Amino acid sequence: MTAPTPPSPDAGFQAGSAFVGATWEFDPSTGKSTRRTGSTDAAEDPNQYMADVHCRAGGTDTPDRGCLTLQCPPKTAGGQEGTPVIWRQAPKAITNPQWSDYPPVSGPTCLYGSEPQNVLTDIAARILTDFHQLPVNPGTLEAQPFPNTLKGGPTNFYTTTTAQTFDTTILGQAVHLTATPTTHTYTFGDGQTLGPTPATGYPTPANTWLTTETRTSHTYTATGNYPTTLTTTYTGTYSVNNGPPLPINGTLTLTTTPKTIHVWKTETALVADTCEQNPHSWGCPGTNTPTKH
């Protein structure tokens, strides 16, 4: 016995009329579903519908490219033109359905008398959530000198954070996102912070580390080991299908892994030999010189 042929995605649909389920009828020209006459077995339509209009915005994943050229003239003189759409359907049992949950159930048709659901609006509603899930690199916090610095002298801090771009797919659309660092908060580990500030700091020559004070340097007043971090706030923009960049209404905040800096004190003494002449002389590397706290 030959197996029955499965229905096509748009089974029961005829352009300009309704596609029909066992109990409910959905009219693609109005975007509304109604109970079939005499049906009593379902309190509400178990499906939710989406009018896919993005084919007119340059999308490539519509089931029929005819949506790009379909004309929807007014039904009456002076009336409003219709909107070319492809209807998609998902069960209401799926909460917050994603694009893949909406298979097409019609070919291109004209929607009249109702505003279609716009995929761009859907993307705007969820873009901040997607922004927070991007693998944005928080950058690094650098210190000069490091890992050891001196009590009472300026320690130069700076960051390597940069703007980052990402290409992803949201609700079937190509989305380009940019995360741009805008403010930084330096936490020095001794209870002192700097920021939020737009200053990223900059590296200085090695021979000026302990004499040059920059906008982002810090002076430790006590010896010890201090965990330092950098917290950066990113703003974002996104564009859909190569459209204009749009601002993301919200920010992303990231903090670097703590980096420990050791603060030492200095002592001076008169010695007879250099370390070259006497490697065991006071203050030479490897000797038990009391230079640390």
Rank of each mutant, 00 (worst) to 15 (best):
T129P: 05
T140C: 12
G152S: 08
F131G: 00
F146A: 13
F146C: 08
Q144N: 03
F131P: 00
V119P: 05
T121Y: 11
A124C: 06
G152D: 04
H132T: 11
T149Y: 03
T159S: 04
V136H: 01
Q164H: 07
P116F: 01
T155W: 12
T155P: 13
P145Q: 08
P135H: 04
T155L: 14
P154N: 11
T129L: 12
T165W: 04
G152T: 08
N156H: 12
R126Q: 08
T129S: 12
L128I: 02
L141F: 13
P154Y: 10
P147T: 08
D130C: 07
T129N: 13
E142T: 15
Q133T: 14
L128M: 00
D122P: 02
P145L: 10
Q144K: 03
T162D: 05
L141N: 08
I123D: 02
R126S: 07
V119C: 05
P138C: 05
T165M: 06
L141I: 15
A125N: 10
A143H: 06
Y158T: 06
P145D: 10
A125K: 11
N148M: 15
L128Q: 01
V136G: 01
T140P: 08
Q133F: 10
L150K: 11
F157M: 03
N118I: 04
E142N: 15
Q117T: 15
D122Q: 10
Q133W: 10
I127H: 00
N156W: 11
I127V: 01
L150T: 14
G153T: 15
Q144G: 02
E142R: 14
Y158Q: 03
N137E: 06
T160H: 02
D130A: 11
Q133G: 13
P135Y: 05
P147K: 06
Q133E: 12
T160G: 04
N156P: 10
N148A: 15
P147Q: 06
F157G: 01
Q117G: 15
F157V: 01
P154G: 11
V136T: 05
Q144D: 03
N137V: 10
H132P: 01
N156S: 14
G139S: 03
A125M: 07
T121N: 13
F157D: 00
I123M: 07
R126N: 07
G153R: 14
L150W: 13
N148S: 15
V119N: 07
N137T: 09
G153D: 11
K151G: 02
N156C: 10
V136Y: 00
T121S: 13
I127M: 00
A163R: 04
T161A: 08
N156M: 09
I127E: 00
I123T: 07
V136W: 00
T161N: 04
P116M: 01
N137G: 08
A124F: 09
Y158G: 04
P135F: 08
D122G: 09
T160I: 07
L141W: 11
F131C: 02
A125T: 09
K151F: 03
T129K: 12
G153E: 13
T129G: 14
E142H: 15
D122C: 06
P145Y: 09
Q133M: 11
P135A: 06
Q164E: 08
T161G: 04
T121M: 08
E142A: 15
